[in-house]
């Protein structure tokens, strides 16, 4: 496996009973990058992350994580990876300092006390170190959890929906921190539902029902899908939106504030629709490059079309950061 990749796995498969949760999954995460892991609920993101850090054993496939074999060297991987779970999973009945101290002891850190004090200073929680972790607000809990999994200075961070249920301000602060870490050379694999978070990633993989649908550098994703988009502005967009949805050649209409993004994969057909619209003179039509937002909405729609199931995919369209 190449040293350029923090994670490089091939053909990862995981079954729970008769259900295949992760199906023949490949992934290469370049060192030092922020790698976004996207997909609807229940698509196998958490399972994949757990396999990477040795919490689950894969039924098939192999690969390496930080140069260690994910099947046989999970002990070494655990020493060098920071894993932040979806749920707050520090001890609510321990104080902030006790939690950090406990984690530091688990990694047998040298200079433990200094590291804990340092982390407390960084968090700005030094004067509240004696407070029980359970009494913190959602945003603080998540910052504490991040500090805890960064305590042993891991080379790779695995973040499983770290910002679920956290307010927008706290999310922005959190992502500032992620970018700072990434700049310092830490590789970050982060799973998320939020599109405004996805656009901040260097690379993206989209997974649905255990299968990888697409992966690549984030700026190339729209081109990889081959999506063309027109931007529409003008009065009474709701009526136009309904009309366009029924128009052949238009595969997707998404509303962003006071504009519509009208997309399709057939450039010629879409252009014809645009021309007709311009001829009416009511709205302003502008051709634009397809962006990640449209690409994700398109991916989500196709994922739910391909696999119509009860647990319909859910993606939250967050406000662009």
């Amino acid at each position: 496996m190449s040293d350029d990749f923090a994670i490089s796995v091939r053909g990862i498969t995981k079954r729970f009973g008769a259900r295949t949760v992760v199906d023949n999954f490949d992934m290469d995460v370049p060192r030092g990058s922020i790698y976004g892991f996207l997909g609807p609920n229940g698509s196998g993101k958490t399972t994949t992350i757990r396999i990477m850090c040795g919490l689950l054993t894969a039924d098939g496939g192999d690969g390496s994580c930080l140069g260690y074999d994910i099947r046989t060297q999970s002990a070494r991987i655990k020493e060098n990876v920071g894993y932040m779970t979806q749920r707050f999973s520090l001890y609510e009945d321990l104080t902030i300092r006790e939690n950090l101290d406990f984690v530091a002891r688990m990694y047998r850190m040298k200079g433990r006390r200094a590291a804990v004090e340092h982390a407390l200073e960084d968090l700005g929680l030094a004067d509240r170190a004696g407070q029980l972790a359970g009494t913190l607000s959602g945003g603080w809990k998540q910052r504490l959890a991040l500090a805890a999994c960064m305590l042993h200075k891991p080379a790779l961070l695995l973040l499983d929906e770290p910002t679920a249920g956290v307010d927008p301000k706290a999310r922005r602060d959190f992502w500032d921190e992620i970018r700072r870490l990434s700049a310092a050379g830490v590789t970050v694999l982060v799973s998320t539902h939020y599109m405004d978070e996805a656009v901040q990633c260097d690379y993206i993989a989209y997974i649905a029902y255990g299968k990888k649908l697409i992966a690549g550098p984030s700026h190339e994703i729209p081109a990889m899908i081959g999506l063309h988009t027109w931007r529409v502005q003008g009065p009474d967009l709701s009526a136009l939106e309904a009309e366009l949805r029924a128009t052949p050649g238009v595969e997707q209409v998404a509303r962003f504030g006071a504009v519509l993004h009208v997309s399709g994969t057939d450039a010629a057909a879409l252009e014809a629709v645009a021309k007709a619209g311009m001829a009416r003179g009511l709205h302003r039509w502008q051709k634009k490059d397809a962006e990640l937002e449209e690409a994700f909405i398109y991916l989500m729609a196709s994922a739910s079309d391909n696999f119509s199931r009860d647990d319909a995919p859910e993606v939250k369209a967050g406000a662009a950061a």
């Binding site: 779970t85 001890y91 609510e92 688990m106 805890a148």
Partner: peptide
């Protein structure tokens, strides 16, 4: 139940 076991066994313990 509280989910702390997951973080715990993600450490080298």
């Amino acid at each position: 139940e509280r989910g702390t076991m997951e973080s715990l066994i993600a450490t080298p313990v």
